[in-house]
Computed example of a mutant assay.
Amino acid sequence: MSDMKNSVFRHNGQEFIVTQDMKDAYNTNGYIVIRNLLSVIEMQKARSGVEMSVGIQKYAHGRSDGNKMKSRQTLWNQPGKDITGVLVRIQRIAGTMEELIGQGEIYHYHSKLMMKDAYEGGAHVWHQDYGYWYNNGCIFSDMGSCFLPLDECKRENSCLQVLAGSHRLGRIDHITIGDQLGADPERVDKVRKLFPHVYVEMCPGDALFFHCNLLHTSDQNTSSSRRWVLIASYNTRANNPYKVHHHAQYTPMSKLPDTALLQCELIDDIPAKAYMDPSEDKSASYGKGIH
């Protein structure tokens, strides 16, 4: 069991700089965690932008884990100019992701709010994001995501789990597992013996940046604590999908100064965000003949 120490960094509240140690850890382990990347007041702003959003609740839908539990999620393809859209474009988030991927200009691929409510949040099987995105026409795995908890993420309420370094395996075939699509369990069983299994416990304000080929999972939330997480995913301009699909093609994304988050007062920018109708989200369904 890894204690994550090689991939955990801390923001001191001053100007944030992506260091070579951060890049090395990301390339070696497939992820880094930055403690206190967002301040308390910035997290209050982010939480209000989520909890007061009409659009997020309007387009939320549940997804069963096949074991009597379900999670809710809302997904949007364009960031928009509201609080959640500004958050995923500030330099500390988007700029950091761009430097970690290291393949030039990035753009907003999509964002989503994952809602695992108390006592009923469903589990997710082991998977790679690129296991889905490969089928959307993305040639390269020059993609990544930033995981921003709005609540404490502990083992008790289903924090993310990763196999540190597993992104170096490349893409693993994904197959139907119950009601979900996940990485081939036979291969995952072997892989789990080779890489540290890390429970990524986080607090609001922390940020997890991870590679799209990193194997990850999460358990059911049977605790009394809600676990809501905002996840922003990015693609590189040079990796623009070769076919039109249900996530964003390359769209220029203007990165914003970090001060823009606290200056933003717009809660909803519904027309601009391109919220996804649940029936159109086929990323996790192609193994069932839907693409």
Rank of each mutant, 00 (worst) to 15 (best):
N6E: 14
F9P: 07
R10H: 14
R10C: 14
H11N: 15
N12D: 15
F16A: 03
T19K: 10
M22P: 09
D24L: 11
A25F: 09
T28P: 07
N36T: 11
V40G: 12
A46R: 04
R47T: 13
G49E: 07
E51H: 14
E51S: 14
S53E: 04
Y59F: 14
Y59R: 11
Y59A: 04
H61L: 09
G62D: 08
D65P: 03
D65V: 05
M69S: 13
T74V: 14
N77S: 12
P79H: 06
I83W: 01
T84W: 02
I90G: 00
Q91T: 15
I93L: 10
G95Y: 03
E98V: 03
L100F: 03
Q103W: 01
Y109K: 09
K116A: 03
A118P: 06
G121H: 03
G122Q: 06
G122K: 05
G122W: 01
G122I: 02
W126F: 09
D129T: 03
D142A: 03
G144Y: 00
S145W: 05
S145C: 05
F147Y: 15
F147D: 00
R155L: 13
R155N: 13
E156L: 08
S158M: 07
S158V: 03
C159A: 06
Q161G: 09
G165T: 04
R168T: 14
G170K: 06
I175C: 11
G178N: 11
L181A: 13
G182R: 06
D184P: 07
P185C: 02
V188D: 00
D189P: 10
F195R: 02
H197I: 08
V198K: 00
V200Q: 03
M202S: 08
M202T: 08
C203T: 14
G205F: 04
L208P: 02
F210W: 06
T217D: 09
Q220G: 08
T222I: 13
T222K: 15
S223H: 05
R226E: 11
W228A: 00
Y234A: 03
A238C: 13
P241D: 00
P241G: 06
V244E: 12
Y250E: 06
P252F: 08
K255Y: 10
T259M: 10
A260K: 12
Q263N: 15
C264P: 11
L266F: 11
P271A: 05
D277T: 13
D277E: 13
S279C: 12
E280S: 14
D281H: 12
S283K: 08
Y286T: 07
G287S: 09
H291D: 14
